[in-house]
Design a protein around this nucleic acid. Structure first.
Length: 354
DNA sequence: TGGAATT
């Protein structure tokens, strides 16, 4: 299956300083003694997943003297979250960094360099993921829809790189988390004016979170199997958390690059299995329990109703190896789960509503 | 009896 290449457009409201001096500036001290970082502190977004703190510092240090910088990482896995902060000593260097490094292409990413808003708890977790948008809806129209709930900092609609047509998926970052919460309450499950389908509005995942999770899932599967052997009477599985403590981020990185693992491919490759006649209470764990004993499972998904959040009676499981998937299907098709007889088969390319 | 999309 071909991985779709995505291109995006993004706009951002002005949130930085409004003037720049042509003279070097030292740190600005306000009346209460606090430093004002608004003209020196930058946020850098869309960094490549594998960029290290050292590379990050090296890149931005080439512009001028750095007061401090930080590549933001997942607290547990240590994986880069794909963004960071750079605070320059001189505001002119911050300005120069925006002018020379914003839009720089690094691997598959186009980095974004802009002034950071002042750090504050109220602006955290204010980013929304929106799906089910009409393909005809423009970024501006999406902003108009959301702007009733607060000040929009950034917005984006993902489009197919080849055709340029909207994928019906986008992001809205509000200035304040409470604004984002209100937008979810007001718009999730609602049909935009003239639309035939409701949209989904939820908090967005962290950048690059998915690849990190896919990697951990992959490690979890392969390592658990290495220790337990294939197919037989597996009574205890390793917890992903126990693996995290045994693999440092550096080890994960080096294993990944040594193995030439393509993170995107690893999460999507495999044999997809359709599971029908699950109960409304079914969750992901039941699929793990059913299929895990047969071999490497890379992904499970329970399909839920939009409003009730109950299972719609079916789900999908992705397994890495054909033999194990075939064995799981042969064993679980017709299997009685509670008072239901499961129907399990390879997913076919049956078409449904797009 | 057939989903999804994460800059």
């Amino acid at each position: 299956m071909v991985t779709q290449i995505i291109s995006t457009m993004e706009t951002q409201v002005s949130n930085g300083p409004t003037s720049n001096s042509s003279l070097p500036n030292g740190p600005l001290i306000s009346a209460n003694g606090a430093t004002d970082d608004s003209k020196t502190n930058l946020i850098v977004n869309y960094l490549p997943q594998n960029m290290t703190q050292e590379e990050f510092k090296s890149l931005f240090g080439s512009i001028g003297e750095i007061e401090s910088c930080k590549l933001v990482r997942d607290k547990i896995t240590g994986q880069s979250l794909g963004y960071g902060f750079v605070n320059y000593v001189d505001s002119n260097d911050a300005d120069k960094a925006i002018n020379t490094l914003n839009g720089l292409k690094l691997q598959t990413k186009t980095i974004k360099v802009s002034y950071a808003r002042p750090s504050s708890a109220s602006i955290r977790d204010a980013n929304l993921y929106v799906s089910g948008l009409p393909k005809t809806m423009s970024q501006k129209e999406m902003e108009q829809l959301f702007s009733q709930y607060g000040r929009i900092i950034t917005s984006r609609i993902l489009v197919d790189q080849v055709t340029g047509v909207s994928r019906g998926v986008g992001f809205i970052r509000f200035d304040k988390r409470i604004e984002a919460e209100e937008a979810i309450k007001g718009l999730n499950g609602q049909k935009p004016l003239g639309a035939s389908e409701p949209i989904t509005v939820k908090f967005a995942n962290n950048p690059s979170q998915k690849t990190g999770q896919a990697l951990l899932t992959h490690l979890y599967q392969t390592t658990a199997r290495r220790y337990t052997g294939p197919l037989h009477h597996q009574t205890q599985r390793f917890s992903p958390l126990s693996l995290i403590s045994r693999f440092s981020p550096i080890t994960i990185d080096s294993m990944t690059s040594l193995a030439g693992v393509n993170l995107t491919g690893a999460s999507s490759a495999g044999w997809c299995i359709f599971v029908y006649n699950l109960s409304p209470e079914a969750d992901e764990s039941v699929l793990w329990q059913l299929f895990g004993p047969f071999g490497a499972v890379t992904n499970v998904k329970v399909i839920r109703d939009f409003t009730t959040n109950k299972c719609k009676g079916f789900g999908f499981v992705t397994m890495t190896n054909y033999d194990e998937a075939a064995m799981a299907i042969a064993s679980l098709n017709g299997y009685r789960l509670g008072d239901r007889i499961l129907q399990v088969s390879f997913k076919t390319s049956k078409q449904h509503k797009a």
